[in-house]
């Protein structure tokens, strides 16, 4: 499913989702009965203080975690109880992740980093390179394709990470503190880029942040505290 194919409303439905951990035999309630919906093509900021459960929510939406309770539907598909292989396929085809620490392979060059998701979907190498080059061009780094992450600035690394999130043409991008390690200019560049992607490709984007200033780029903001929506 690609962003272009999105239709229907809502695109994401989170119903009564709870997530409990046990840390040193003590229960931790990361999320408590969280419920909201997201319309296709929305750019949403999820805000809250550290430890409020924002990242847990993103991980559940990205199929990296299974909620202890409740139901999550993305693009009409219940992702709450996927098998490991189904969850991997879901992440590969539907979701693009952007992390605060970029999570680029230091020994891969930019194009190899961007092409990584395509490797796990079995795309042949020439096609992969072409699509990775397109994605890099889309984020304005077409000329830096052979550079390793150590040769790029923070902002550029995050743009490579965004290109990696885009390369499989997902319908959902989950960005966890994408500007947490960037200065003001780079933050602006990244948020403008995400906004352009959202507008141009109608990709639904959820940005986790505690930076209030980023809310101006979002259609709306979801606030979360102590695992509950406020």
């Amino acid at each position: 499913m690609t962003g272009d194919e999105l239709s229907g409303d809502p695109f994401i439905r989170v119903d009564d989702v709870a997530m409990d951990y046990r840390v040193a035999n003590a229960p931790v309630h990361a999320l408590r009965r969280v419920a909201f919906t997201v319309t296709a093509g929305e750019l949403i900021c999820i805000m809250g203080p550290s430890g409020s459960g924002k990242t847990t929510l993103i991980h559940i939406l990205g199929g990296l975690l299974t909620p202890t309770q409740g139901r999550v539907v993305v693009g009409g598909r219940d992702i709450s109880h996927l098998t490991d292989n189904e969850a991997s396929a879901y992440r590969n085809s539907t979701v693009g992740f952007v992390f605060q620490l970029f999570q680029l392979m230091p020994y891969y060059d930019a194009i190899e980093n961007v092409a990584l998701p395509l490797i796990f979907s079995g795309v042949p190498a020439p096609v992969r390179r072409e699509r990775a080059r397109e994605a890099l061009t889309a984020v304005g780094l077409g000329h830096r394709h052979s550079h390793k992450s150590g040769e790029l600035s923070g902002g550029e690394m995050q743009r490579v990470a965004i290109a990696r999130a885009l390369v499989n043409r997902p319908c959902l991008i989950l960005a966890d503190e994408p500007t947490g390690n960037l200065d003001r200019d780079a933050t602006r560049t990244i948020m403008v880029l995400l906004k352009q992607i959202n507008t141009g490709s109608r990709v639904t984007i959820l940005v986790v942040t505690h930076n209030e200033a980023l809310s101006e780029y979002a259609h709306r903001t979801i606030r979360i505290e102590s695992g509950e929506l406020v």
Binding site: G62, L64, D84, N85, S88, A89, R91, N92, S93, F97, Q103, M105, L116, P117, F120, S121, R164, N168
Partner: peptide, 16 residues
């Protein structure tokens, strides 16, 4: 570890 995490995030299965 981080590499495994990224691979899994972009769609690698346990088998991969």
């Amino acid at each position: 570890r981080r590499e495994i995490g990224v691979f899994r995030a972009v769609g690698a299965t346990r088998r991969d």
